[in-house]
Amino acid sequence: MLDKPDVELTKPKAHHLGHRDRLRNRAREGGLPSLPDYELLELFLFRSQPQGDVKPIAKALLDRFGSLSGVLAASVEDLRTVKAQDIKGRTKAIGQETALDLCALQEVARRVSLEEVTKRPVISSWTALLSYVRIALQHEPREQFRVLYLDHKNQLIRDEILNRGTVDHAPVYPREVVRRALELSAKSMIIIHNHPSGDPTPSRADIDMTRQIIEAAKSLEMQVHDHLIAGRHGVTSFKQLGLM
């Protein structure tokens, strides 16, 4: 009599079994730059979710936020709205810990980019400055107004958020911008804010507000080097546009 086949040996294996090891091996052999965004995100999710198939979650995150940078810039609350189906068709939401880990990764990226800005005079580190502005503000869902306060050598004293607003407005008072500069003994500043709509084109209100800050700063012998507006479609410089 023939032995009955081992049920476990003949049972088809789920496609995700061994996937983690295969992906890690590919990353080691070909290098992380060779991986597509969703697989790079998977590698990070392996640590937040030590069991199960995380590929559907990685792809759902990219679909929801549009890009890897969009995923990392999302808030904990927004990340937790993302859901994906596992291999058995069960719906699984992004947990609190996974969302927090992704937000922490964004904060690491922001701080690393800020280090590049602080190593030398900010106005001579244009590429590093633009990179920092993109990471800090490009995907912010609400308008945020911040100022880089600089010393007499144009080195960074403080990167300060002066106001957070709605999806299209963050009220700013020029006297508060200048008052804070006095408190920090700043000699100059760079104004930064974002347009959650994605279009970094300055509005009439942006232009008027910038001119008011420039005039207030000038009366105290302070200089405003530039005003940068970040959006998903790029970063706009008032100085390059001839607006100041």
Rank of each mutant, 00 (worst) to 15 (best):
Q49H: 11
G52F: 10
V54Y: 00
K55W: 13
P56Y: 07
P56S: 03
I57F: 15
K59A: 01
K59S: 02
L62V: 04
L62E: 09
D63K: 06
R64V: 02
S67M: 14
L68F: 15
G70L: 05
V71S: 03
V71N: 05
V71Y: 00
L72I: 14
L72Q: 11
L72R: 13
A73P: 07
S75H: 08
V76C: 11
L79K: 03
L79W: 05
R80G: 12
T81A: 10
A84V: 06
D86R: 03
I87N: 12
I87D: 13
I87G: 10
T91S: 10
T91F: 14
K92M: 12
K92V: 15
A93W: 03
I94H: 02
G95S: 14
Q96I: 02
T98L: 12
T98M: 12
A99V: 15
L100H: 14
L100Y: 07
L102D: 07
C103T: 14
L105S: 12
L105I: 11
A109P: 09
V112C: 12
S113I: 15
S113F: 13
S113K: 10
L114S: 03
E115R: 10
E115L: 04
T118E: 11
T118H: 05
R120W: 07
P121A: 03
P121R: 11
I123A: 09
S124R: 10
S125E: 11
W126L: 06
A128P: 00
L130C: 09
S131R: 01
S131C: 10
Y132L: 07
V133K: 01
